[in-house]
Design a protein around this nucleic acid. Structure first.
Lengths: 199, 199
DNA sequence: ACCTACATCAATAAAATTTCTTGACCTCCT
DNA sequence: AGGAGGTCAAGAAATTTTATTGATGTAGGT
């Protein structure tokens, strides 16, 4: 270990939500993690590069987005402390990433490398379960998002986001929230004004 | 070719300063180049990563520096349009880079990859000469810099820089110039005040 | 034909960040 | 003792990034 203990506690607590590890196992797991620091606006991953890591955020705040040729960005995920983020597709397949991941604040992450990841699953099969749960949660959340786009209006999505993640508004620039919601920053700005009036 | 012709002209002109190429050779050379775009503050290379490319700046402005553990940066090179930049040590040896290279403006580069570089030298041996000249120029400049540190004061170095590269002051933040000169930004600021008074 | 829900573009305002300058006070060298 | 230069803290200035607003447009639903 070469990171302060408290950081490991954060990720261990995250793991403990789904599987129970022995002291030995915890130690082994932590030994596979490496710390990565990013400055604000720095890319963790750029579309086109291969993603060799999955990561867990211990500090800061990142966004993952697809960018089309015209430079239009569609944000698909935010990640704050305690969240996992990465381009799974590229990580597992070894193909170039389609996602770009960028730090929105100075951030710190734990990274686990593709090989160590395999090693981990081999040594501690319980992690299969852990990552399955992670993935399935992500999948469910994704489905919900798609659904909300099909059924509801932007205002509804905005309110949902606000109640579900109240901290976002304080930490994430509005234009990024707009991109996440699938509207323009201008429109989000107007929506907020509306809502403020009503109350 | 997939970049506008004028960009190729810039790099071809640079090459032509030292060696003459046939149309065929030019075409081959250009075919090995790939375009890389960087946003302001983005790293081209981070200390610790392996540098797989050498690059030629077609737009923007970058700096290369060593950072010590305390985060102190010592700038060793600036590169504007028409300059080559990279961590040769890492490029040739395959060892992790000790230099960090960062864009100071949104920038565009041509990159040539290690393998293609070898290929180039093999196919067009004239490039041996070209890169030798490049290297030796860099070497000479480096020697001069060391010398100026041993003999002269900071003011002298500053004035030299200003006459040699007048454009620097307009494009490069003073604190970077200070770092390049080996003084603190505060001290540089005072030196400038002094000089302004005298004239 | 007329809403509603949203987009675009341009201008401006407001906030945040980065850069530069200054003052006060060291230190080392000769 | 004086010159060359450093550190730290505070402000001022410049630049960049974000957010807001107004004007105007479009597509789909009723």
């Amino acid at each position: 270990m070469k990171a302060p203990k408290s950081l490991y506690n954060l990720i261990l607590a995250n793991v403990a939500k789904h599987i129970a590890l022995t002291a030995e196992e915890k130690k082994f797991f932590c030994s596979l993690l490496r710390v990565k620091k990013l400055r604000k606006r720095q890319y963790l991953l750029q579309a086109g590069d291969v993603s060799r890591f999955e990561q867990f955020v211990t500090k800061g705040c990142l966004r993952a987005y697809y960018a089309d040729e015209q430079g239009h960005e569609r944000i698909v995920q935010f990640a704050l402390e305690g969240w996992w983020i990465g381009d799974m597709a590229s990580f597992f397949s070894g193909e170039p990433a389609t996602l770009t991941i960028e730090a929105m604040e100075d951030s710190e992450l734990f990274q686990i490398d593709r090989n160590d990841f395999e090693l981990l699953l081999e040594k501690i099969p319980k992690f299969e379960r852990f990552f399955r749960i992670l993935l399935s949660n992500a999948h469910i959340a994704h489905q919900r998002r798609v659904l909300s786009h099909l059924t509801g209006g932007a205002q509804e999505r905005y309110l949902d986001l606000r109640t579900k993640y109240p901290s976002f508004e304080q930490r994430i620039p509005l234009r990024h929230i707009a991109s996440y919601l699938g509207v323009t920053p201008e429109f989000l700005s107007r929506m907020r004004k509306q809502l403020a009036k009503k109350k």
